[in-house]
């Protein structure tokens, strides 16, 4: 755009596209303010924030914020927790969702299939605040349903809310609980897309139903599975703040097993008012996320160009 014709051409096009540009305007302004402007705020990670100075006026402090984050041992802990939880979530959810999808299609009773699918989808619609109450209902030491069962069977009450080792299981359970119906929809769609003549051929060849599932259905939904798997890998450094905060809350006893990057960022900011360190943790996460998403996108493009983001 450095010659006169280019500039003129640019304005001519802009005029031609004026209606389009006007339609884009709200979204563009929104994105500039709420996504791009905050990106410049990552400089706070290298600053000692004070209220009067704000983002731009606060003094620089080099890598102090990162030093604190890494040397306190928190970086290793929260990164490990975030990744391990996500790995567990991805594997367990994928396997269960596929199993549910395959078995749902094997159910011939239409009403049974519809009702059970609806029930499985229901948890997706409620907020994590409500799930937090449900978790309390089940796992509370004094009133929890589970402890009632345990004592009825002659066991000792378990204080789940002071027992960090129990939480990986509880969190995996609720994460699955909330996502099983939602996630299986994708696989159901993939199964519906399989050409029925393949099943007929398998039946003629004498395959039994289990062979049909393992030799036809599962291989045929592999492409979908791989794509969805890769897409979820893209978010492996993102902790689901909603879930962790509502189930664990500010229960410090559980942090070793439940603290993820997002809950640490939040606590550093809101509880400790340590803007600098919180920004440093946030930047650390954003960079990790960026790298994984770009890598994953490359891999996804390798399998199927249609699914790439850019």
């Amino acid at each position: 755009m450095n010659n006169k014709k280019g500039v003129k051409g640019f304005f001519k096009k802009a005029y031609k596209y004026r209606a389009f540009l006007l339609m884009l305007l709200p979204a563009v302004v929104y994105t500039l303010i709420f996504a791009y402007y905050p990106m410049t705020g990552v400089v706070l990670a290298f600053k000692k924030y004070n209220f009067s100075g704000g983002i731009w006026g606060s003094p620089w402090n080099g890598f102090e914020n990162f030093k604190f984050f890494f040397q306190s041992g928190q970086a290793g802990l929260v990164t490990r927790n975030t990744v391990l939880y996500n790995v567990a979530f991805i594997i367990i959810n994928t396997v269960t969702q596929i199993a549910v999808a395959i078995l749902l299609t094997e159910i011939h009773g239409k009403h049974f299939r519809k009702v059970s699918q609806s029930l499985m989808f229901l948890p997706y619609f409620i907020s994590w605040v409500i799930v937090g109450v449900m978790a309390f209902n089940i796992f509370s030491s004094d009133y929890g349903f589970l402890n009632r069962l345990i004592t009825a069977l002659g066991g000792e009450k378990v204080a789940f809310y002071t027992k960090p080792e129990a939480w990986p299981f509880i969190l995996v359970f609720f994460n699955l609980w909330k996502g099983v119906g939602y996630g299986s929809v994708m696989y159901l769609a993939a199964i519906m897309g399989i050409d029925t003549s393949i099943y007929e051929a398998a039946a003629i060849d004498g395959a039994n139903v289990f062979q049909r599932i393992f030799k036809v259905t599962i291989p045929m939904i592999m492409p979908t599975t791989i794509i969805l798997f890769l897409l979820s890998i893209g978010g492996i450094f993102k902790g689901n703040f909603d879930m962790f905060y509502n189930l664990v809350g500010t229960n410090g006893l559980l942090y070793n097993y439940t603290d993820v990057i997002d809950t640490l960022t939040f606590r550093a900011l809101v509880t400790n008012n340590n803007y600098g360190m919180s920004a440093a943790v946030g930047l650390f996460q954003s960079v990790l996320c960026f790298i994984t998403v770009v890598l994953v996108n490359k891999l996804v493009g390798h399998y199927d160009k249609d699914y790439t983001l850019f």
């Binding site: 994105t31 303010i33 402007y37 990106m39 997002d262 946030g282 930047l283 996460q285 996320c289 850019f310």
Partner: peptide
């Protein structure tokens, strides 16, 4: 399109948004 998609790749994180 890229202008919009890019925001899903990188974000400023909680603190800058909170200050905003």
């Amino acid at each position: 399109s890229f202008f919009f998609y890019f925001t899903t790749l990188f974000s400023g994180g909680l603190v800058p948004y909170y200050i905003l």
